[in-house]
Design a protein around this nucleic acid. Structure first.
Lengths: 144, 144
DNA sequence: ACAAGTATGCACCTTTTGGTAAGTGCCTAA
DNA sequence: TTAGGCACTTACCAAAAGGTGCATACTTGT
């Protein structure tokens, strides 16, 4: 064990910076990520946090490019997870609105910095995506 | 247009709360999400932001359950996107470490609230996942 | 001689995700 | 009568994401 040629990379002391020893989560961030996993969940939470209670159709139109199937599905999961509350007014043309539970609201708040970051670094993000698109075009050739 | 039986759901004024009219992004959050899309990217950014420069193997061990393929792939994408800097020391047993660019570091900072949220609401999150697992077990029957 | 560690690359395959398109039941405006 | 809005639901299918395992080239400890 003396004179290790490979710098030992001692991870044991160096690792597990955030909250260790949890059910199956690496850390708090890991836990959060599993809750908001899903293409539209963060957006839903954020919109509901900003706009207050919202009807299904409102959300639908607010989020460009979401399909009914996806929006419903994600809303249902968020509801099952206790982040979103669904209110069905049982009216005859259906009327339903969605709002955040306290838990969901706190998560929505935690998303604010991400939104801010995206807004502030929009230029870089846009450039990055332009480059990704270029690469993709080149790599699509051989497969087809 | 008078006396609308359907509450008009006026979205035009009610919608687009965060930064509107962008290349193709609904808002800043949308932009951010596309950059960090990928099972491990937020974790990578967060770890690098907390631990400082880190070697590949360190990251690998820090993130439970990540495969080589995935970790490399995500690191490469983060590098291509200008969030992570790869340093290859060209040594004979390979030595490489990864650190954040200023851009990446700012994103790592924005992830802190999410980590905090996860830590603070670990109990709820754990319960939620226990329930999801139960559902899954029940629904797996008919398909097979 | 051999296993193991270093940081990857690649091929193959399964699982997950997400999109499309259609339909439901009830209503109202044209 | 027809069209369209509301809030969904379902079935089917394509694409993307991600896991497994093998290979590399070199070194070191046993």
């Amino acid at each position: 064990m003396s004179d290790p040629a490979y710098p030992p990379t001692q991870s044991p002391p160096n690792v597990q910076r955030c909250t260790p020893t949890l059910p199956g989560f690496t850390c708090g961030l890991d836990a959060t990520l599993r809750v908001i996993a899903g293409k539209w969940k963060p957006l839903i939470l954020y919109f509901l946090a900003q706009d207050g209670p919202s009807r299904y159709g409102e959300l639908r139109r607010a989020m460009r490019d979401v399909s009914d199937k996806m929006l419903i599905q994600q809303l249902k999961e968020l509801e099952a997870d206790g982040l979103v509350k669904r209110t069905d007014y049982k009216e005859v043309p259906p009327r339903v609105d969605y709002s955040l539970t306290p838990l969901g609201h706190s998560l929505g708040e935690a998303l604010v910095p991400l939104c801010t970051w995206g807004t502030e670094h929009m230029a870089e993000v846009t450039r990055v995506f332009a480059e990704r698109a270029t690469w993709a075009r080149r790599e699509r050739r051989p497969t087809v």
